[in-house]
Computed example of a mutant assay.
Amino acid sequence: MNSLTNIDRLSLNQITTNNWSLPEAVEGCVKAEVPWIALWRNKVEETGLAQSARLVREAGLKVSSLCRGGMFPAADAAGRAARIEDNKRAVEEAAELGAKTLVLVCGPSADKDIAEARKMVEDGIEQLVPFAESHGVTLGIEPLHPMYAAERSVIVTLAHANDIAARFKPEQVGVVVDVFHVWWDPDLYPQIARAQGRILGYHVSDWIVPTPDMLLGRGMMGDGVIELRRIREAVEQAGYDGPIEVEIFNQAIWDRPGYEVLAEMKDRYLKHV
Rank of each mutant, 00 (worst) to 15 (best):
M1P: 10
N2L: 03
L4W: 00
R9I: 01
S11P: 11
S11M: 05
N13D: 15
Q14P: 05
N18C: 02
P23Q: 02
P23V: 03
A25K: 03
W36K: 10
L39A: 14
K43L: 14
L49I: 12
A50H: 04
S52Y: 11
A53E: 12
A53M: 11
R54E: 14
L55F: 04
V56I: 15
R57W: 07
R57K: 15
E58V: 09
E58W: 08
G60H: 04
L61K: 09
K62F: 00
K62N: 06
L66N: 07
C67Y: 12
R68D: 14
G70N: 08
G70D: 09
M71S: 10
A74N: 13
G79V: 06
I84G: 03
I84A: 04
K88C: 12
K88F: 04
R89W: 01
E92N: 13
A94Y: 06
E96R: 15
E96D: 11
G98S: 10
G98K: 02
A99M: 10
C106A: 09
G107D: 07
G107S: 09
S109T: 02
A110F: 05
D111N: 13
R118W: 00
E122I: 06
D123T: 13
V129K: 03
E133M: 07
E133A: 13
S134M: 11
G136I: 05
V137Y: 00
T138W: 00
T138Y: 00
I141S: 04
P143A: 03
H145E: 06
A150Y: 11
I155N: 01
V156P: 11
A161N: 01
A161S: 09
D163Q: 09
A165P: 10
R167D: 12
F168V: 05
P170M: 01
E171L: 02
Q172G: 03
Q172L: 02
V175Y: 00
V175M: 02
V176G: 02
V177T: 10
D178V: 01
D178E: 07
H181M: 04
W183T: 04
W183E: 07
D185V: 08
D187V: 04
L188V: 05
Q191A: 13
I192A: 03
Q196E: 15
G197I: 08
I199Y: 02
Y202F: 15
V204I: 14
V204C: 14
S205D: 15
D206W: 04
I208V: 15
G217R: 09
G222P: 08
G224E: 07
I226P: 09
L228R: 06
R232M: 08
A234C: 00
A234D: 00
E236S: 06
Q237A: 14
A238N: 03
G239V: 07
P243A: 06
P243Q: 00
I244N: 07
E247I: 09
N250W: 01
Q251T: 12
Q251E: 04
A252P: 04
D255K: 13
D255M: 12
Y259K: 13
L262M: 13
R268V: 10
Y269Q: 10
L270W: 12
H272R: 13
